[in-house]
């Protein structure tokens, strides 16, 4: 495959790549840059690919590495490292659900037929809004775990945080998302 053929094939992949990067980097310019770099790297290796799907898989692997590099870089930023107001709010959201003995004040009800939501376009808008409204660090760890599909050990290593810190961030992120989806989608409140 020539570079021209490849760039044509990958053109319709680009918007999806940008959305993929944007939700995780939370920075439009950084997302565009990461996608651009990944596409350029693919173009340079065009002759290696038999078809568009092999190239797409490869581009995603490159993009994924670029996102992890960026997270690693941000992880060293002392400002970003410190817990912030958003995380404190997420922590109280968690604590306030329980009484002094650790029992539910108001047990959450089950969602009825949540799988049906996956077919609805509007659900995905709410899903992305909820992820975007998480504080930076829990969102990053959740994204690495669930959207990039990394193992939690790998995440701790990349970000230089302890396993228990990693589990706490994942747990708070998940309960934050549960709360957001309950309010904004499953409408139980």
């Amino acid at each position: 495959m020539t570079a021209d053929e490849l760039s044509l094939q990958l053109a319709d992949l680009r918007p999806r790549l940008v959305r993929f990067a944007r939700l995780q980097l939370r920075d439009d310019a950084a997302a565009e840059d990461a996608v651009q770099d990944a596409l350029l790297a693919a173009a340079e290796n065009a002759e290696r690919f038999e078809g568009a799907s092999a190239a797409a898989t490869w581009v995603f692997a490159i993009l994924r590495n670029k996102l992890v590099d960026e997270f690693r870089r941000r992880g060293r930023d002392p400002v970003a490292l410190a817990g912030n107001e958003g995380e404190a709010a997420l922590e109280s959201l968690f604590e306030e659900q329980f009484d002094a003995r650790g029992h539910w004040r108001d047990p959450p009800p089950a969602w009825s037929d949540p799988a049906a939501s996956l077919e609805q376009k509007r659900f995905w808008e709410v899903f992305e809004i909820c992820i975007s409204s998480l504080p930076e660090r829990p969102a990053r760890v959740f994204g690495m775990r669930e959207l990039l599909g990394m193992e939690s050990e790998e995440i701790c290593k990349e970000l230089g945080i302890s396993s228990s810190n990693c589990w706490v961030l994942l747990h708070r992120a998940r309960l934050g998302l549960r709360d957001c989806l309950s309010r904004r989608w499953f409408g139980e409140h």
């Binding site: 992949l13 959305r19 993929f20 797409a56 996956l118 669930e146 959207l147 599909g149």
Partner: peptide, 13 residues
């Protein structure tokens, strides 16, 4: 849902 989101974005052209 996260896994479905990922697969949707990673699907080949």
């Amino acid at each position: 849902a996260s896994s479905a989101w990922r697969q949707h974005h990673e699907a080949p052209p």
